[in-house]
């Protein structure tokens, strides 16, 4: 396993995340895709730390921060989904069209 392998994995996960976030219609699906992008960043950070910059653990520390922040963000997202589901009974983005112009 070399750095290239990890970076390729990271890039693939990143692209899957981007594709999912742009094409999914279900909000939960979009949230999952966004998590994938965050995880791609974490894979990159850990791999760079291990192979390119083995002195110090800055990369892994940053990855820990990202994991925490992503979790916090998803909590808020799910709360919003719950609030909107109570009012409209749907989690599909194409049904949200009150605001336009």
């Amino acid at each position: 396993m070399t750095l290239t392998h990890y970076l390729t994995l990271g890039a693939i996960v990143f692209l899957i995340g981007i594709f999912g976030a742009l094409t999914r219609r279900n909000i939960i699906g979009i949230l999952m895709s966004i998590e994938l992008i965050f995880n791609a960043a974490n894979i990159n950070l850990a791999a760079f730390n291990r192979f390119l910059h083995p002195q110090g653990v800055a990369g892994q520390a940053v990855a820990l921060f990202f994991i925490t922040i992503a979790a916090a963000e998803v909590v808020v997202g799910l709360a919003l989904v719950l609030a909107i589901y109570r009012n409209t009974d749907t989690v599909y983005v194409e049904d949200f069209s009150l605001l336009k112009g």
């Binding site: 909000i27 992503a70 605001l99």
Partner: peptide, 21 residues
Amino acid sequence: SNEGALKYFLFGAFSSAIMAY
């Protein structure tokens, strides 16, 4: 208000994930 927040959230989370990358 719900809908505005949700749209804001989806765009916001997406762009901050890309920024993390």
